Amino acid sequence: MKIVITGASGFVGQNLLRYLQDKECNVESLSLRKTWQINKSADALIHLAGKAHDTANTSADKEYFEINTELTKKLFDEFLDSDIVDFIYFSSVKATADTIEGILDEEHISDPKTPYGKSKLLAEQYLLSKDLPVGKRLFIVRPCMIHGPGNKGNLNLLYKVVEKGIPWPLAAFENERSFLSIDNLNFLILQILKNKNIESGIYNFADDDFISTNKLIQIIGDASGKKSRLWNLPAGLIVFAAKVGDKIKLPLNSERLKKLTESYSVSNKKIKKALEINKLPVSAEEGLIKTIKSFQSK
Results as ranks from 00 to 15, higher is better:
residue 31 S to F: 11
residue 40 K to T: 15
residue 259 K to D: 01
residue 54 D to M: 11
residue 294 S to P: 09
residue 274 A to L: 14
residue 265 S to Y: 01
residue 243 K to I: 07
residue 60 A to R: 00
residue 5 I to N: 02
residue 274 A to S: 15
residue 201 G to D: 06
residue 283 S to I: 04
residue 245 G to A: 14
residue 298 K to G: 12
residue 168 W to P: 07
residue 1 M to L: 05
residue 264 Y to A: 00
residue 164 K to S: 10
residue 99 T to K: 03
residue 22 D to R: 10
residue 117 G to K: 04
residue 127 L to C: 01
residue 263 S to Y: 13
residue 206 A to E: 07
residue 205 F to P: 09
residue 59 S to K: 11
residue 160 K to M: 06
residue 252 L to R: 07
residue 230 L to I: 15
residue 245 G to Y: 13
residue 228 S to T: 15
residue 130 K to P: 10
residue 156 N to M: 03
residue 99 T to A: 09
residue 149 P to F: 08
residue 153 G to T: 07
residue 198 I to D: 13
residue 112 P to H: 07
residue 65 F to S: 06
residue 222 D to W: 12
residue 218 Q to R: 15
residue 154 N to Q: 06
residue 118 K to D: 11
residue 71 L to A: 10
residue 277 I to V: 15
residue 179 F to N: 05
residue 39 N to H: 11
residue 152 K to P: 07
residue 97 A to G: 04
residue 228 S to N: 14
residue 179 F to L: 13
residue 3 I to H: 02
residue 37 Q to H: 05
residue 22 D to I: 00
residue 120 K to I: 10
residue 127 L to M: 02
residue 162 V to F: 04
residue 179 F to C: 08
residue 185 L to T: 03
residue 20 L to T: 09
residue 291 T to G: 06
residue 263 S to C: 02
residue 25 C to H: 14
residue 235 A to R: 02
residue 159 Y to I: 07
residue 292 I to P: 10
residue 228 S to V: 14
residue 149 P to G: 09
residue 218 Q to H: 14
residue 247 K to P: 01
residue 130 K to G: 07
residue 197 N to H: 05
residue 252 L to Y: 06
residue 260 L to Y: 12
residue 169 P to F: 00
residue 194 K to L: 06
residue 206 A to Q: 07
residue 220 I to K: 03
residue 296 Q to P: 08
residue 150 G to I: 15
residue 275 L to Q: 11
residue 129 S to G: 11
residue 68 N to S: 07
residue 40 K to G: 13
residue 212 S to T: 05
residue 64 Y to D: 08
residue 72 T to V: 13
residue 221 G to P: 14
residue 259 K to T: 00
residue 105 D to E: 04
residue 151 N to K: 04
residue 298 K to N: 15
residue 284 A to R: 02
residue 42 A to H: 06
residue 246 D to H: 02
residue 172 A to S: 15
residue 10 G to K: 13
residue 268 N to L: 06
residue 101 E to P: 00
residue 164 K to R: 14
residue 14 Q to G: 07
residue 182 I to L: 13
residue 213 T to H: 03
residue 117 G to F: 02
residue 187 F to N: 08
residue 10 G to N: 09
residue 230 L to V: 14
residue 163 E to K: 03
residue 277 I to M: 01
residue 78 E to R: 15
residue 190 L to Y: 10
residue 81 D to G: 03
residue 65 F to T: 06
residue 272 K to D: 08
residue 106 E to D: 07
residue 149 P to H: 14
residue 114 T to H: 00
residue 8 A to E: 05
residue 65 F to W: 04
residue 265 S to M: 09
residue 230 L to G: 12
residue 164 K to C: 07
residue 36 W to P: 06
residue 235 A to Q: 00
residue 4 V to R: 09
residue 80 L to S: 12
residue 249 K to L: 05
residue 114 T to I: 01
residue 8 A to V: 01
residue 263 S to V: 00
residue 32 L to K: 11
residue 186 N to Q: 05
residue 142 R to F: 00
residue 240 F to S: 05
residue 121 L to G: 15
residue 65 F to K: 02
residue 211 I to D: 06
residue 201 G to I: 08
residue 192 I to Y: 01
residue 157 L to Y: 15
residue 293 K to D: 14
residue 103 I to C: 14
residue 97 A to M: 03
